[in-house]
Computed example of a mutant assay.
Amino acid sequence: MINIKKTYYYFFYKIYKSIEYTSTLVGGNFLTDFKTGLVILTLELWFLGSFLNYYSIIYDIKLNITAKSPILLIPLFLICILNYFSFIHTDIWKKYNNEFDNLPISKNKKGSFIVWSIVIFIVLNFFISAYLLQRYVLKM
């Protein structure tokens, strides 16, 4: 059975390691955990945005989303709370990072492939959904 919490921490771990590696290369190896949290928040928001775009197209509904819209604020609040208690409030992610560092190389490579496939899927899905929504709105 897949442990969702551990999977979420593994996702964080792979992005953290990537940011740590690239930050070291350019001399900006600071606030890596904050940067990772920001990347995860962005991916979560893009996933939510894709869902709203497809929902708008499929149900032929024009969503008037503003900064005060509950359809935006409630998921954003829930995502921020989840990320806060997972990564900022406690340092349990460091324990998981140490555990994941000790995984066999072959298992980590498979994990990297899966994580980066998910990241690519989310990014492409968001931009494709925005493109389709734009085309749909222009046809109206």
Rank of each mutant, 00 (worst) to 15 (best):
T42A: 11
N98A: 14
Y10A: 05
I88V: 15
I105E: 13
I81W: 00
F47G: 05
L38G: 14
K95D: 14
Y8S: 12
L132R: 10
I92V: 12
I65C: 01
W116H: 11
N125C: 05
I71Y: 00
D33P: 04
K68Y: 06
S56A: 08
Y84S: 02
P75L: 02
K110L: 15
Y84Q: 01
R135V: 05
F121Y: 15
L43V: 05
I19C: 06
I128T: 12
K107Q: 07
K107S: 07
I61M: 00
S117G: 14
Y84K: 03
I2T: 07
F121N: 04
G28F: 08
Y13I: 03
K107H: 09
I57S: 04
Y55S: 02
D60N: 14
N97E: 12
L76P: 01
K62T: 08
I71F: 00
Y136E: 04
S23P: 06
I120L: 14
S50K: 10
I74T: 10
K62A: 04
L132T: 06
Y8T: 11
A67L: 07
S18Y: 13
N83H: 10
N53E: 05
K139N: 12
I40S: 05
I92H: 13
G28H: 06
L82V: 07
C80V: 15
S106K: 13
G28C: 03
S56C: 01
V123F: 13
E44H: 08
I71H: 00
